[in-house]
Design a protein around this nucleic acid. Structure first.
Lengths: 167, 167
DNA sequence: TTGTAATTTCAAAAATAAATGAAAGTTAAA
DNA sequence: TTTAACTTTCATTTATTTTTGAAATTACAA
């Protein structure tokens, strides 16, 4: 396979994966492009490589910056902004994990907490509901703290975790 | 909060969470409904509770069965089918993890393998591409086997994993 | 078997999400 | 300041995904 083909295939695949995980295609593609670019790219560069509009590029670059997984860079004497991806993959995964926990898991936990705390009534249905949602709260809560523990190693956490699990 | 309100809030929240993780809203809602139902429900019941069409119910019930997280039940003398959710939450999470690994991670790994194996050319860009995609392959591959290891405990894997990580 | 209740399918419609592009807003060099 | 390069915003358009509902199919009690 040619480099150009491979690069394109990688960007498309990463975009599709993003979609399946609730991240929009362009956002994932910009990120993919920046990951494999040895140099920082300008918005113009990105628009050109991905064939997307200025507005689209601007919004998704901002979203990526909000997630903390790409950064702005300034070149001396140049007015335009350049972008680079977080280069450490462990760090990248940690940031994504933390962000998703904050945005999705934590709010869900609040709701589970709330709904599992309804008053006891006589009804079987309500009793079962309380049991199930409480179980779910317990599970999600544990899973979330497990993820926190794993990603708190800061460095090569995947390897460290595997080591600990092997024992 | 009233039981009915709580139940509705739970179903809506679970649906929204699904959406953020690339699962369609109705599929997640049907699953939520079945989880908190003490009795098996028929398609008619589900349509009524969620205000959805027959076709929608049918398709998403099938998808949930394909994922292995809900089951059909037959009542003697009755023609219609009933559905129940996997009642063990650890088991539920294991199945989802396995399924997503199979459907999304494994195919991505294949592509990463492929694109990181392009011929060496002189270009810096291609060299950097190879390095990055190989790193990514390595990472995703390890993360996937970590998940496999964790979920292979079969029973209360979250707790077991936390225990191991505490040491 | 037959009749019919129950389920599935799928083209079309509706809803949702994402992308465009031009105008408005910023910023810094002249 | 002014000007021009660059970025952001957002109403509108486009694309994608989901849902509907009626026809086709299936399957089971009689």
């Amino acid at each position: 396979m040619e480099f150009d083909q491979a690069k394109n295939k990688f960007i498309q695949t990463w975009g599709a994966l993003g979609t399946q995980w609730g991240i929009n295609k362009t956002m994932a593609q910009i990120h993919a492009l920046l990951m494999v670019s040895p140099e920082a790219l300008s918005m113009e560069d990105i628009m050109g490589e991905l064939y997307i509009s200025r507005g689209n590029a601007s919004m998704n670059l901002r979203a990526l910056i909000d997630w903390g997984i790409i950064f702005k860079e300034y070149k001396t004497g140049e007015r335009r902004e350049y972008f680079v991806a977080e280069s450490n993959i462990d760090e990248l995964a940690r940031k994504i994990a933390k962000e998703r926990s904050k945005r999705e898991i934590k709010p869900t936990l609040r709701v589970l907490q709330e709904v599992s705390s309804i008053e006891e009534t006589g009804s079987t249905e309500a009793a079962h509901f309380k049991t199930k949602t409480a179980e779910l709260y317990e599970f999600v809560s544990r899973a979330d703290s497990m993820l926190e523990k794993i990603t708190d190693y800061k460095e090569s956490w995947i390897t460290k975790t595997i080591m600990k699990l092997m024992k």
